[in-house]
């Protein structure tokens, strides 16, 4: 329960950062997708039912602040979560490099799912050319944000919770690496 509240609080912080603070800093349409990073993290470390429900709830909340298509973000985020869950047994979930790689793959998958959902199911103009055009910058932004967040989380753990065992952070912290 506590973890669920923590994840929802993190999602809330991500939304505030993406809608209010980052647009001021980055001056433009592009902003890193912090919710995507959170969903990938949930995919790596949470059980399918609990994580899936949580991700769908986050997606549903995200619809209130992103785009004008109710249910779109829920569909896209749950799709990413399911794919990550599908491969989680075959990968080392505690490698920071892998998390970065998953963020890149997740960004591409997200854009494919958005384009699929809008171009096949809605009456809007085709969005995929715009998504393809924006994708390289978006990948770069998400990758940078994931890298900074990893560093920040490891530093926070070292500073404030040196003995706590956070999922996924055992090997992200260099002290635990062989």
């Amino acid at each position: 329960m506590n973890r669920t509240v923590l994840y929802l609080a993190l999602a809330g912080i991500a939304v505030v950062l993406q809608t209010v603070f980052l647009p001021v800093l980055l001056q433009g349409y592009y902003k890193p997708d912090l919710l995507l990073i959170l969903v990938i993290y949930l995919g790596l470390h949470e059980k399918p039912l609990r994580g899936g429900l949580l991700v769908y709830l986050i997606g549903w909340c995200c619809d209130g602040v992103a785009g004008v298509f109710p249910g779109l973000n829920g569909f896209v985020l749950i799709g990413i979560f399911m794919v990550v869950r599908g491969i989680v047994a075959r990968i080392n979930t505690e490698s920071s490099s892998l998390l970065l790689l998953l963020v890149v793959a997740g960004t591409v998958l997200q854009s494919v799912l958005v384009a699929f959902a809008l171009d096949f199911f809605s009456q809007t103009a085709r969005i995929w050319p715009q998504i393809v055009w924006q994708l390289p910058v978006q990948v770069l932004l998400n990758l940078t944000a994931a890298f900074v967040l990893l560093r920040l989380v490891v530093w926070l753990q070292r500073t404030f919770m040196p003995r706590r065992d956070l999922p996924g952070l055992r090997k992200l912290d260099r002290r635990y690496e062989p």
Binding site: V15, Q18, T19, V20, P23, Y29, Y30, K31, D33, L35, C62, V65, A66, G67, V68, N73, S111, V114, I127, Q130, I131, Q134, Q138, L141
Partner: peptide
């Protein structure tokens, strides 16, 4: 007071 949370949309 706020922009869209996603880079794909403009609201």
């Amino acid at each position: 007071i706020a922009e869209d949370a996603s880079s794909w949309f403009r609201t």
